[in-house]
């Protein structure tokens, strides 16, 4: 890196990063939509690619490609209680691990890029699904608080037929 990231300068350590990722995971597992939504910055991108994980989300189909406004729409739909694919909500628990701070200069200056693996069990009446993949996060310090600017989830099954994915992954 040519210039030290401001996030580094304010000395966010791996422990704080992990605590943030675990909290984000818990909000998603427990369908705490308000708390989860509050983590995002205004320039957010929540992206689950399909097919080629390096594709362009503007020109290619993605499983999810939500900017901040579409994140809000997705959560509003969930909050109606009539989002049938999540009504009743899935029972979820995920493990986030292999957390690494990566040397990446994407996003705004100072954004911290973090990689992690996850395994998630989803239980619904139709049966259990196991989800797994690699997540790349971009975190930003805003008023002393870590926020989420970018979350890209590459499922190990990204090029296969996926069952309904209506919870927050």
């Amino acid at each position: 890196m040519t210039a030290p990231a401001t996030t580094h300068e304010t000395s966010v350590d791996l422990r704080q990063v992990e605590q943030f990722l675990y909290r984000e995971a818990r909000y998603a597992d427990e369908h705490d939509y308000d708390a989860w939504e509050a983590l995002w910055t205004d320039d957010a991108l929540y992206w689950v690619p399909a097919g080629a994980p390096e594709g362009d989300p503007v020109q290619q189909m993605s499983v999810i490609s939500d900017n901040r406004s579409r994140i809000a729409t997705r959560l509003k739909q969930l909050r109606t209680g009539k989002r049938y694919a999540q009504s009743p909500p899935s029972h979820l628990r995920r493990i986030v691990s292999n957390v690494e701070i990566l040397d990446d200069e994407g996003g705004e200056p100072g954004d911290l890029t973090v990689g992690a693996n996850f395994v998630l069990v989803e239980s619904r009446e139709r049966g259990n699904e196991m989800w797994a993949g690699r997540t790349t996060y971009r975190l930003r310090l805003v008023d002393g608080q870590l926020r989420l600017a970018y979350k890209k989830v590459v499922l190990v099954d990204h090029d296969r037929a996926l069952p309904t994915l209506s919870f927050l992954i």
Binding site: V48, A50, P57, V58, Q59, Q60, M61, S62, V63, I64, S65, D66, R70, T73, R74, Q77, R83, Y84, A85, R126, L162, P163, T164, L165, S166
Partner: peptide
């Protein structure tokens, strides 16, 4: 593409609900 990604597929805001009904 943008509108379609929001609507269809496993996480689509329309098709996930259709699919719930199919199942």
């Amino acid at each position: 593409v943008s509108q379609c990604v929001g609507s269809v597929g496993p996480a689509g805001m329309l098709l996930a609900d259709d699919t719930e009904m199919y199942e």
